[in-house]
Simulated scan of single mutants.
Amino acid sequence: MLMSNADRPARLHYMANGFRVLVPGDHVVCGVTGARIALEDLRYWSVRDQQPYATAQVSSEALAPR
């Protein structure tokens, strides 16, 4: 039986120039806001923290020095 990846969160390994899919799915969840991000829309993530971000602003705030 084939399993659909629709409506399932993916698990990714984030790298400097992309990401590798560890567990197939159709989206990830923003590490700050909890917003759902479709894989085709994923543009921002942290290699160090291994988490995705929904927008450039969320990414900048999360990665800003404290």
Rank of each mutant, 00 (worst) to 15 (best):
M1G: 14
L2A: 15
M3D: 14
M3V: 10
M3Y: 06
A6T: 01
A6W: 02
D7T: 03
D7Q: 08
D7A: 06
A10M: 04
A10C: 04
A10R: 01
A10N: 02
R11C: 11
R11Q: 05
L12M: 11
H13T: 15
H13K: 15
H13L: 15
H13Q: 12
M15Y: 12
M15T: 11
A16M: 14
A16L: 10
N17W: 08
G18R: 13
F19H: 13
V21E: 10
V21I: 14
L22I: 08
G25S: 11
G25A: 07
D26S: 09
D26Y: 00
D26F: 00
V28S: 02
V28H: 02
V28G: 01
V29Q: 06
V29A: 07
V29T: 05
C30F: 06
G31Y: 03
V32Q: 03
V32Y: 03
T33V: 14
T33F: 15
T33C: 14
R36Q: 07
R36E: 09
R36H: 06
I37M: 04
I37Y: 00
A38Y: 11
L42A: 09
R43H: 11
V47D: 13
V47K: 08
R48I: 09
Q50W: 10
Q51V: 14
Q51P: 01
P52N: 08
P52W: 00
Y53T: 00
A54C: 11
A54L: 07
A54Y: 02
T55L: 05
Q57I: 10
Q57P: 02
Q57Y: 11
V58I: 07
V58Q: 05
S59T: 04
S60E: 05
S60T: 09
E61D: 09
E61P: 00
E61T: 02
L63T: 09
A64N: 15
A64D: 05
A64Q: 12
P65N: 08
P65H: 05
R66D: 00
